[in-house]
Design a protein around this nucleic acid. Sequence first.
RNA 1: GGGCGUAUAGCUCAGUUGGUUAGAGCGCUGCGUUCACAUCGCAGAGGUCUCAGGUUCGAAUCCUGAUACGCCCACCA
Length: 714
Amino acid sequence: MKKQYNPKLVEKKIYKFWEKGKFFSPEVSKSKKRFSIVIPPPNITGSLHMGHALNAVIQDILVRWKRMQGLKVVWVPGIDHAGIATQNVVERQLKKEGKTRFDLGKEKFIERVWEWKKKSGTIILDQLKQIGVSCDWSRTRFTMDKEYNKAVILAFSHYFKKGWIYRDKRVVNWCPRCKTSLSDLEVEYKEKKGKLWFIRYRFAENKKKFIVVATTRPETLLGDTAVAVNPKDQRYKNLIGRKVILPIIEREIPIIGSYLVDPSFGTGAVKVTPAHDFLDYQIAKKHNLELIQIIDEDGLLNRNVPSRYQGLKPQVAREKIIEELKNADLFEKEKDYIHQVPLCYRCNSLVEPLPSEQWFLRMSDLAKVALEAIEKKKVKFYPSRWAKISSNWLKNAQDWCISRQIWWGHQFPVWQCKEKRKFFFSQKKPKKCPLCGKCRPHQVEDVFDTWFSSALWPFVAFGWPKKTKDLEEFYPTDVLSTARDIIFLWVARMIFSGIEFMGKVPFKKVIIHATVLTKEGKRMSKSLGTGIDPLMLIEKYGADATRFGICWQISALQDIRFDETKIVAGKKFCNKLWNASRFVLLSIGEERFNLKKPKPKTPADKKILSELAKVIKNTDKNISKFEFGKALQGIYHFFWHKFCDIYIEESKKQIKNAKTKREIKSTKEVLIYVLANSLKLLHPFVPFITEEIYQKLPISNKKPLIIEKWPNQK
RNA sequence: GGGCGUAUAGCUCAGUUGGUUAGAGCGCUGCGUUCACAUCGCAGAGGUCUCAGGUUCGAAUCCUGAUACGCCCACCA
């Protein structure tokens, strides 16, 4: 053995050894007890970031720990087709060639995406291998493969038959760049400095008098159909029912009363633009107001506005409108105002609320079963505070807009009769229209929200809808580990999908892991240049050191302010481990040992053996509580300061001063026993180096460490 | 507007149901290299536990309030 540990010489070799031995497969165990877990499938557009690395380490520790305990362990990997994200990547590529997806047409475009996927879609899986995750790669799934498509269609038809799917025209979040609807969860709000504009609406019967409304979007007045005030508002109460003249358009619109209006905001009077605002839409529905759409799907003003405004961007029209208002003496004042602007979570464009026909999944019953599962603790959250947060979301969950107008995704298995204009479900392309018997119906162009297919992951990963052995054996899974930003988007939806289709919750425990921040407490982000690339760390320090450094910083409750010096500490620890092992190997010479617990002969023997027993217990306790940082720190302290600093030094004396060969042997037995067990304890955390060393130990009846018996297992 | 999290050594964090002298890693200071490892060993310095009240024989820990930072949700146009 060399004096210094070099991860580069070891890690690739060891990983190949594990793969070749098929040790990641559940078949290595004959146990009836099983432990199953599915990876949160990373997007095919993704490349490994610290969040992935942290989550990979957490899951891998659990999986390796359970595997060594002898359980039948499966960890299913996969990748997600990531509809909008992937489509955007390919669109950007096309843009460089001066083309749009519409130039290519749908079919060619989708071909192009598949090509891209083939080339770049599995990069992230190779990156995960580099950190040493022990997924069963033979079970890898892709959320767009043929079998997965069948599952999506079946799930849809199930909901369809239950009557929970409906089509409705309503105001939805629309991304004019992606040209698709978005669910509420796919919109992000960002603070932006803007203005609040105060505009006069003259009364129809007395044009000298007016009511002042405040708005952040004056341009939408072109689509106003009312002015609303709170009926409790003394200032305006008596005005309800009267008519005002809509500026510029010169149309009469009513003043209506609505309790949704906040009297303390602005002037207490609101212009109502039902087609382009969620609150206004709600008010309009109650009062049967007309919906005038003035912004089209490209995000431009359409034909329903005066010709001089047609085709303009709303922001451009805004300037002109204000000017026009000023000229007409209808402009009262403006005020600085910070408001939240809605942005597309995939491309960051300004989201326009606009009326559109979309497919919705009714949430009432589904949310109820998920809520019950959480409240009855059939699914337990770690840390527990996330349970409450999930419940609160489920209690208020709106119906889910599941249709998207992009091309990359699972297409709706819904067809439309050309005669009767009605929709019907069909798994395959119908030869004849079942509704009119004459026409050749055409398939709805929409595809599913990516999260619709992701929601099915914990059982489709095992083969559903086929009744596979895996599904039988491994569903429900034991643990799901994920980031907090997809609790609503994904976790909650998996819970109700699992109950709906499998009759059981998809996982018993959910770990919501920390967010990895920069040392300054800022968000890690590629675009801001604040991200740290885990692959760079692996390159620089080795995978074990990287895992060590990440794991050291895991605490259940707190976010991580990432500290690279912990990775350095990991590297030093690996070297310590290496050299301590070198010492033990050198001092025990050629003899072979079994791993029976030795009988302590000296106080030092006794002490180290009892310390070992303690640290084993402590490690088990901490891992089962998902306190990975504490678990590792405990072993670290034991190994470095109790074993190396004290016992190894003591053992030198014991060997030197020994009077009989038996006494020497006894010390050697303790040395190798403690070392071997330390390697076992450390293996889930730093798998490569521990495996490498373990293979060098002269122990009889030894297995590869990855499937070796966990300390104190029978 | 509602909710949540955090505040402990120069930095990143532990601190179990309140109980002697508040811990770790890194960094820092001093000493030490033939004897597993200088990616090391030994010794050491360093803390008004954010602030203000309260409960208690006793508070980093429990309660109330304040301040700061961060996050989430929401229909203030």
